[in-house]
Amino acid sequence: MNASSQLSHPLRSQRLNQVTHEPHSKLDNLVKSHDPFGSPERFSHFVAAQYLFQRDLEKLYNDPELIKLVPDLPQRCRVEQARLDLADLNRALPEGDDSIRNTTMGTGEALAWLFVSEGSKLGAAFLLKRMPALGLSETFGARHLGEPEGGRAQGWKAFTAVLDSVELDAEQERLAEAAAIAAFERFTVHLERCFA
């Protein structure tokens, strides 16, 4: 066992948290710098980025092999909620590219992308508290931030239990870690584009 893996957490979900700490912090700071809660219009840029990211992952959320691992996976996708939010906010759907949708991923990589999307639901609870000031709610303009069925904490625990239990070899582990970082970087690109 090499030195770096001894420092790593035994749980994959915790290791992915560790390796994405820097891109996650950078993204958080970038979000704050764009002041998405300053007005409904500013928030619509944020929702557009969310829509593009959920669109990237739509195929993964509906992948039959992944559904065997996470049976409620299709219901977890928020692309439709983000689409409706953009309509509420009178913003046209942004054009997405298919580079992620058309990428063939192994199970570890796919779960790592989903890990980033699912993890964002935990933070969404705090964002939802800012919505009344904008005249928005989980039924208008901020549906994609809404409480998932069964609750946020329960949904996250169920997802990470699967993520932590899937057997991956060393190369698949490496690819999963790279995929989680790539997911944060992809959202960052969407955010920059939508606020440009």
Rank of each mutant, 00 (worst) to 15 (best):
M1R: 13
P10L: 09
Q14C: 06
V19L: 03
N29R: 12
S33P: 10
P40V: 10
E41S: 13
A49C: 06
Y51I: 05
F53L: 13
F53M: 15
Y61R: 10
P64H: 06
K68L: 15
V70T: 12
D72C: 05
Q75P: 00
V79I: 13
E80Y: 12
A82L: 07
R83T: 12
R83K: 14
D85V: 09
D88Q: 00
P94V: 03
E95W: 04
G96P: 06
G96C: 08
D98C: 11
R101N: 04
R101K: 02
T103E: 15
T103M: 15
T103D: 12
T104D: 14
M105E: 14
E109N: 11
A112Q: 06
S117H: 09
E118G: 08
A125Y: 08
L128N: 06
M131K: 05
S137L: 11
S137D: 15
T139Y: 02
T139K: 03
F140Q: 12
F140T: 02
F140C: 09
P148G: 03
W156R: 05
W156D: 10
A158Q: 15
A161S: 08
A161G: 00
L163V: 10
S165Q: 14
E177A: 15
I181D: 02
F184Q: 05
E185V: 08
F187C: 01
E192N: 02
E192M: 01
C194Y: 00
F195W: 07
A196P: 14
